[in-house]
Amino acid sequence: MSAPLRLGTRRSALAMTQSQMVADAVSAASGRDVELVPIVSEGDVNRASLSQLGGRGVFANGLREALAADRCDFLVHSLKDLPTLQPDGLVIAATPAREDARDVVVTRDGAPLGALPPGSRVGTGSPRRIAQALRHNPRLDIHDIRGNVDSRLARVRDGELDAVILAAAGISRLGGDLGGLHAEELGLAEWPTAPGQGSLAVETRTDIDPEILAALAQLDDEHTRVAVTAERTVLSALDAGCSAPVGTHAAIADGDLRLRAIVYALDGSHRIGIDRTVRLDTGYAREPGSGNDADAADDGGSITRAARVGREAARRLLERGAADLVPRESTT
């Protein structure tokens, strides 16, 4: 009988829940048992704010070290926390179908973010969410917070905060119970989220048993991989860290890959945005009012085209002054 496969995961309730979902799917695909191997990451013990931690892979490095040392066979990451530079010897074997990519504002009474009164205390540790919240309502009192979903919700329920901003996917994967609180779902057109938000990444070693790699690959969702490739390419081409004030969202509709990317000033006072569309079956890319974009034509596959449209979006954002708004990172 084959030994169980070992899945490395962070220890938080959300990470364990996500990982168990993947473990069950891999077990069904491989016919082998899968056991979770909890691993402590730097981000779990370092209580500095996300803006200080930057894009150094603090939620991924410890897991990747365990994988490289053969303490586990594969990993499950929240893709939005994963640096865009892929380490030698490791490969993203699958990106399962994406959950809801939106952010939600959670309050006690259901008041929308834009209607919260001056001085309302809103908790988030994300520079992007801070910038977006202040742009929607400059009168807010933003509190830089860390912690798991339950602890953040408790701070609203107990009256310490008036609202928190969270990922819809995390709430959904934990069962969706807000304990009597109310959620305002934020539309992706005006509130694009972190590149890869709502998506998971299944990572393994390049030298793993081909049968294991094939089992992991069965979890891959092509539409998700194409969309997150475009989003993460924007972040990489901007040379911005995972916590930079950059919101992106890409989706496939009627054979088109549609990408929206916005870079924000940290105080929300200014933003630079762009929309790009690429026709996946022909490589024909266009932007409203721009006519044909010959430089976006691509003879490669959908992933190659997604990366190209991401690079093109980043180039145009930089031409419009995005470099003045984005803290640069050399280790994304």
Rank of each mutant, 00 (worst) to 15 (best):
D33I: 00
R121F: 00
R64V: 03
T84A: 15
L325R: 11
Q197F: 04
H77R: 06
V326C: 04
G241W: 00
V26F: 02
A261V: 06
P210S: 03
I165A: 02
A94Y: 03
G54L: 03
G289K: 10
A294T: 13
D281Y: 10
E42F: 08
Q197A: 15
A115N: 10
A48N: 13
I303F: 08
D254I: 05
T229D: 10
G8Q: 08
G321M: 10
I171F: 11
T9C: 13
V40Y: 00
G175N: 08
A240D: 05
A265N: 06
T17A: 15
L7W: 07
A306V: 05
E211T: 08
H249D: 08
L67V: 06
G196K: 07
A25N: 01
D207R: 11
A115G: 03
R128L: 15
V105W: 01
T277Q: 07
A115Q: 14
S30D: 00
L116E: 02
L50K: 04
A240F: 00
R173G: 00
R173S: 12
E222V: 05
A3S: 12
T229N: 06
A68C: 06
E203M: 15
A217T: 03
A68H: 08
Q18R: 09
A168T: 02
R173K: 08
A15I: 04
G31I: 09
E203I: 15
G62A: 10
R205V: 00
T224L: 10
R279L: 11
A60F: 03
A253E: 14
N137W: 09
A189F: 13
F59L: 14
E203K: 03
V34T: 04
D293V: 10
A111G: 03
A94F: 02
G321W: 10
H77Q: 09
D158M: 07
P192H: 04
D293R: 14
R152M: 09
V106G: 07
R98G: 08
T304H: 12
R56P: 05
R271D: 09
R102M: 05
D295S: 12
R157H: 14
T193Y: 05
G273C: 11
A253Y: 03
G198A: 07
G241P: 09
V228E: 06
A169E: 13
V26E: 01
D70M: 06
I252K: 01
H249M: 08
P245Y: 01
R135L: 01
V156T: 10
G268R: 02
W191A: 06
A101I: 08
G123V: 01
N292M: 10
D158W: 02
L216G: 05
S243P: 02
D281R: 13
D150Y: 07
L317H: 08
D88E: 13
V228A: 05
Q20P: 00
R64Y: 01
V263S: 06
Y284Q: 14
G247I: 03
A253M: 03
L79H: 11
G114V: 13
R135C: 11
I272H: 09
R276D: 13
R232F: 04
L36E: 04
R232Y: 01
E287R: 15
G159R: 08
S243F: 12
R64F: 05
S126V: 01
G8S: 09
A66K: 11
R121M: 01
A194C: 05
A189G: 06
G198W: 12
E190T: 12
L63P: 04
G247C: 11
